[in-house]
């Protein structure tokens, strides 16, 4: 190794900070560093701890990251063909996908989301409705009582005068089934009904999507909203 014992960088006359004095020439920088790389390839004597430490560090990182990657490689395990199909213009999940997938749904959580997106506008966040126009959902026989009647109201809507918990109301409940503008699926209707039947102290049973489907098929001829008298 060329050990050029230079004098310690002399603080010469141009210590003006606006000049940014240089303390090494380009030739020196290149020659010294080339020698440092050369020494590494042909170690002269002894050994340095750094390459050993670096080897350990790099190996550890590769090991840890590989484990992390394997655990979080979702989509890659089925092969690159599947993993990259999102790029493909002709990709159709019906054809290329894995078919029916069983998904666990928390009916209360989904119902709460749906309720807070739509129903809350009239029936309010606390389910108390507004006097005269929108009936309360809390402790109401319409909600906790007959399941078929409740499903009918949400599927096809309800309008005209109605008495709930002793108070009169006169408003319009829109239809959420295929005849209305929302066109909610049977699942969605079942989830939001389960939610309102079990929230705010209500403690009625769950409503399953199949029940909604059954009522929908039985009342397929109904095209207009119900009145309280119909039910």
């Amino acid at each position: 190794m060329p050990r050029r014992k230079g004098t310690k960088m002399s603080q010469n006359e141009n210590s003006d900070p606006r000049l940014e004095a240089s303390a090494a020439s380009d030739q020196d920088i290149q020659a010294v560093h080339a020698a440092l790389l050369h020494d590494q390839q042909e170690p002269a004597q002894g050994y340095s701890l750094m390459p050993l430490f670096m080897l350990g560090f790099v190996s550890t990182m590769i090991f840890v990251v590989a484990i992390y990657f394997i655990h979080n490689r979702a989509g890659l395990s089925d092969g690159l063909g599947v993993a990259t199909t999102i790029h493909h213009k002709g990709y159709d999940p019906q054809v290329h996908g894995g078919g029916e997938v069983e998904v666990e749904v928390d009916a209360i959580a989904v119902g709460k989301t749906l309720y807070s997106q739509v129903c809350v506008a009239c029936h309010q966040i606390n389910g108390q409705g507004l006097p005269g126009a929108f009936p309360p959902l809390v402790a109401s026989d319409w909600v906790t009582g007959d399941e078929e009647r409740l499903i009918k109201v949400v599927l096809h809507g309800l309008q005209g005068p109605i008495e709930v918990n002793g108070a009169p109301f006169n408003g319009i409940m829109p239809a959420f089934g295929p005849s209305g503008t929302y066109k909610w699926s049977d699942d969605k209707i079942a989830y939001v009904l389960t939610y309102i039947r079990q929230e705010w102290g209500n403690a009625a049973g769950e409503i399953l999507p199949d029940q909604v489907t059954a009522v929908k098929e039985a009342t397929a001829s109904q095209t207009a909203a119900y009145t309280a008298g119909d039910l």
Binding site: M1, N14, A24
Partner: peptide, 13 residues
Amino acid sequence: TVFSAPAAMEVNS
């Protein structure tokens, strides 16, 4: 003259 020449680079690794 503005920039004086630096000393040779020190190496003591």
